[in-house]
């Protein structure tokens, strides 16, 4: 039996694969100043992550109309899940829901750039160090920047604290948005809390490997590598209305204004999380 369309499709994917291989082996691709490799991200990272995104986590997205089609903005989201898979899924949501597709440039902790492999993958997928010069440059160049103000406090919190936003620290992201006159888009991610429920933290081991924490989950480290398989929770990602920061643009150094706005963003995200959890009472529903 011969199915011509199927064979054409197969043929096309082989041809694309060869073209990709050709670019990679000859070094004929572009990398930006931050090390972002769009070719590799679109053709290798995204297809792999998309399997998780679609089939494992069954992710649904709403509010994507709030992501601007062009120009820069700061997307601020809650952080959870022991390892930062939520950040990668957020990137994919932004990419797949925008037309033309846009890349979310993540800001990561210095710990990420300390590690071999991880640092390489981070830079190639568009992440850079969370520091003022880099954010200013990304926003100036018209990029969408992804921030998780909770940092380790969010991603490494105990399972009992799930969906409770942690402190926003210095709220540096607000100052950055004000200084650059860019909107803040609050985003809420439901589902990441359940993938690796964090029950404990082996501090001496964390210190030994220089990590912020060493996670203990119901499956890790007990099941070894199997414990690295995330639990198949149902994910929802929502983008809220953009917050215009231009009215306070001259007050980027006023802590009162900064904390006030940070609280507003925090409450918006917490509110969205509450609504979304009502829509998804069972974390492992279909």
């Amino acid at each position: 039996m011969d199915v011509p369309e199927l064979r054409d499709e197969f043929d096309a994917s082989i041809a694309n694969g060869l073209a990709f291989l050709r670019r990679r082996l000859t070094g004929d691709y572009e990398v930006d100043d931050f090390g972002f490799d769009a070719d590799l991200t679109e053709h290798v990272f995204h297809p792999v992550l998309r399997q998780l995104y679609r089939h494992w986590f069954r992710t649904t997205v709403d509010g994507s109309k709030n992501i601007p089609a062009e120009g820069s903005a700061l997307i601020v989201a809650n952080h959870s899940g022991t390892v930062a898979l939520d950040a990668l899924m957020l990137c994919l949501a932004v990419h797949d829901e925008t037309e033309p597709h846009r890349f979310l440039r993540l800001l990561a902790a210095d710990f990420v750039f300390r590690l071999p492999m991880v640092s390489e993958l981070a830079r190639k997928s568009g992440a850079t160090l969370a520091c003022n010069p880099d954010v200013d440059r990304l926003l100036h160049d018209g990029h969408l920047v992804g921030v998780f103000p909770e940092g380790y406090k969010g991603v490494g919190k105990h399972y009992s604290q799930k969906y409770k936003l942690q402190r926003f620290g210095r709220a540096g992201f607000v100052s950055v948005a004000l200084r650059n006159r860019k909107p803040i888009i609050p985003a809420a991610i439901v589902g990441a809390e359940e993938i690796y429920p964090l029950l404990g933290n082996i501090k001496p081991l964390a210190r030994l490997i220089g990590a912020p924490y060493f996670p203990v989950t119901p499956t890790f480290p007990w099941l070894g590598p199997l414990g690295l398989v995330p639990l198949p929770s149902k994910w929802l990602i929502r983008f809220g209305d953009p917050i215009d920061t231009t009215p306070w643009a001259d007050q980027a150094d006023d802590p009162a204004v900064v904390f006030n706005l940070a609280d507003q963003v925090r409450e918006t995200i917490q509110g969205m999380l509450g609504e979304m959890l009502k829509e998804r009472p069972d974390p492992f529903e279909d």
């Binding site: 100043d33 931050f34 090390g35 210095d110 750039f113 300390r114 640092s119 850079t128 160090l129 520091c131 010069p133 880099d134 440059r137």
Partner: peptide, 11 residues
């Protein structure tokens, strides 16, 4: 590891 991605003369 804590350096910005791009150095200006002021860094």
């Amino acid at each position: 590891f804590r350096d910005p991605a791009v150095f200006t003369e002021e860094t």
